[in-house]
Nucleic acid binder design. Structure first.
Lengths: 204, 204
DNA sequence: AAAGATAAATAGTAATTACTATTGTTTTGG
DNA sequence: CCAAAACAATAGTAATTACTATTTATCTTT
């Protein structure tokens, strides 16, 4: 194995370069969705994007860095939405309706993100991606820990963290399930999970 | 892409051949655990197993068939255990203690299976593997639907299926979580999830 | 408008990949 | 014990992979 470069050769400064980076990422996501992780190669990304390999390698040190960037952007979008609504609702007792909306929002965001569903699947494919997924979940826990003052007032911090961690994981699991299997009754699954999570978080 | 063979060139009939097949599978699992899915190649499997490519390709038509066999065997082990205890306990109202034991057993089985944790991760890597995972979950639902007579007597079949499907998914999610992150308090997570699932399944 | 900096293309390469036609070796049934 | 079947090794190959040294084009700034 050749020694892997860690940093890109250049950061995009001009507008054209920024467009190229976005084009590379959206093309990669599209191919990921169409043909899956195994079929995704840098050469195919370049061909599909109508650019050449040196252009890709100018901004991404290697193939995995590209995938990590894709994952990071999706995780950031999910986290941002969670932080948004968590802040506005965090002072009161969590409600099933709010939790439902929260989960539904995560589904919407992932669907709206180009290749989002496929990216969710690839999050298990390499150690780096597993890390990104895990730390995204922990950062959700961290955000909720601060914003959910109603819960924080009612239990110890370790207990709160433990419950939030599990809540995030189960919520995510339901989201993945719904994203993966379009035959399922999405609304009722989200409702049920929301109910379970709220009951779990608020129980004494 | 070359046309993919669907069937192996031969099934193992003699004892030696059966050993070779097992050796290939366990070696593949070991490499999967050590270096991850991306690093797994047929040539590496052969070298590590001390065999040659034609020996591998005699029993597996291609690389993906090998991975599918690995996944299928793990899923079968998990399903078998579930069926076992479900039958003995299915007549009565599900208890938290039984559910805890069930989840813990799944964790144990996966850990005991060579490369089990790594196989669980690769279940998202290709369409075929995603299918195997999904149909394994549905077959768990199917088994439980028949064995859990106490539940079946208390709700309509579609409702039962919906609840079991979600229960299986959430249970699996907790199992994956525990397998993936050794820092977590395994027992308490399993306990909490067991409680949630039992409450969900038995609620009216 | 020219100089300098940034961006992208040309034209590749070394290494690795999954996979095989053929030949030799072991096992089994009669 | 021997023929036939099953098994495995020898010795590869065509195709693909991630990636790059160098040259050319485009943009920005003065």
């Amino acid at each position: 194995m050749r020694t892997q470069r860690l940093e890109p050769r250049a950061r995009p400064t001009q507008k054209r370069a920024g467009q190229t980076v976005d084009l590379i990422l959206t093309t990669a996501a599209k191919l990921l969705e169409e043909n899956g992780f195994e079929e995704l190669t840098t050469n195919k990304i370049c061909t599909a994007a109508g650019i050449t390999p040196p252009a890709l390698y100018r901004y991404f040190p290697n193939k995995y860095a590209l995938l990590c960037e894709l994952a990071t952007r999706l995780m950031a979008a999910q986290n941002a939405d969670l932080a948004q609504t968590a802040i506005t609702k965090g002072g009161a007792r969590p409600t099933v309706a709010d939790m439902e909306e929260q989960l539904a929002a995560q589904v919407r965001i992932t669907r709206a993100f180009p290749g989002g569903v496929a990216i969710m699947r690839t999050l298990y494919a390499t150690p780096q991606l597993i890390d990104i997924r895990l730390s995204s979940h922990w950062s959700m826990v961290d955000g909720l820990k601060s914003s959910q003052t109603w819960l924080a007032a009612r239990m110890s911090e370790p207990e709160l963290i433990r419950r939030l961690r599990l809540a995030v994981e189960l919520g995510n699991s339901a989201i993945e399930m719904v994203l993966e299997d379009p035959d399922l009754d999405e609304a009722s699954i989200i409702h049920d999970v929301a109910e379970m999570i709220v009951a779990y978080l608020t129980k004494t």
